[in-house]
Nucleic acid binder design. Structure first.
Ligand code: FES
Ligand code: FES
Lengths: 131, 131
DNA sequence: GTGATATGATATCAAAAAAGTATCATTATT
DNA sequence: AATAATGATACTTTTTTGATATCATATCAC
């Protein structure tokens, strides 16, 4: 079972590096210190900036830093950047599975299950995954 | 996020059908009543038999029936047939991610997370997903 | 025992998702 | 204006999932 995907994992590591680098680093710095494919890392950092976890700055002496204190970032928050959640009650299978979509109760139960997993993730701070 | 895969879903439905069919059915019967690709369904039933959820019988008047009462079958039990669990403490990524496998604590935390999800699954009876 | 009928085992193929790459545009510093 | 960083985004490769096909084996009716 794959709990999180590699993007989430890489993000976790990159954030850890930034924290240890005084809260600021650029792609080159992170890349030269960790075994993450550079263009992939770049895209991940961009997504973190997009998600307002990091703040990016272009040009010389640019790079990434935390937009807000990292202590409160949860796994849920990080994970949903890279592993999109279904809208509640939506069928996780590209239809055609249930005979009747309208009367199907399973899709609700499955999305409730995802909900519960996310609740679990809400209680996990990424800083605790670093230790 | 994909909580269960299609195989698990199909298995769930097939078992539901068998239950409603008096606890016994063969592939043709199930196939003609549900929208599951026949050879795929066949393989899934074989796996259920292998996992001792169903008992199979070959030849004329053969088919599948529950080996034990279905009431106690959990989602955990069903899911792990189709979505193999990592051995505890094992890295979910094909190595090369952590600088030092031996000192990595993350892999343990991730496998603990899977553990917790499974605990959740242990408390879900498949019969409750049918209702 | 033989033929029909069901599953067992397993190899292969196709589609989708995840992982990884490449490129050009834009902005900040000097 | 030149340089050095990220932004945006399209593309390719690899892996996983979903689906198929085939032959072997067991059971039953006759
Ligand atoms: S409609 Fe998708 S599970 Fe029922
Ligand atoms: S070795 Fe895989 S997560 Fe650390």
């Amino acid at each position: 079972m794959r709990v999180i995907k590699k993007e989430t994992d890489y993000a976790l590591r990159a954030l850890f590096f930034i924290k240890n680098n005084g809260g600021h680093a650029d792609v080159s710095k992170i890349y030269s210190n960790m075994d993450i494919p550079r263009p992939f890392l770049r895209r991940i950092l961009q997504q973190l900036a997009h998600a307002k976890i990091l703040l990016s700055k272009k040009g010389k002496h640019g790079g990434f830093k935390f937009l807000r204190p990292f202590e409160k970032i949860t796994l849920a928050r990080l994970n949903e950047i890279f592993d999109k959640r279904l809208p509640p009650g939506e069928c996780p299978f590209k239809n055609k599975v249930c005979i009747n979509y309208k009367t199907c109760v399973l899709k609700g139960k499955l999305s409730k299950l995802e909900e519960e997993i996310y609740k679990m993730f809400e209680n996990i701070l990424i800083k605790d995954l670093w230790m």
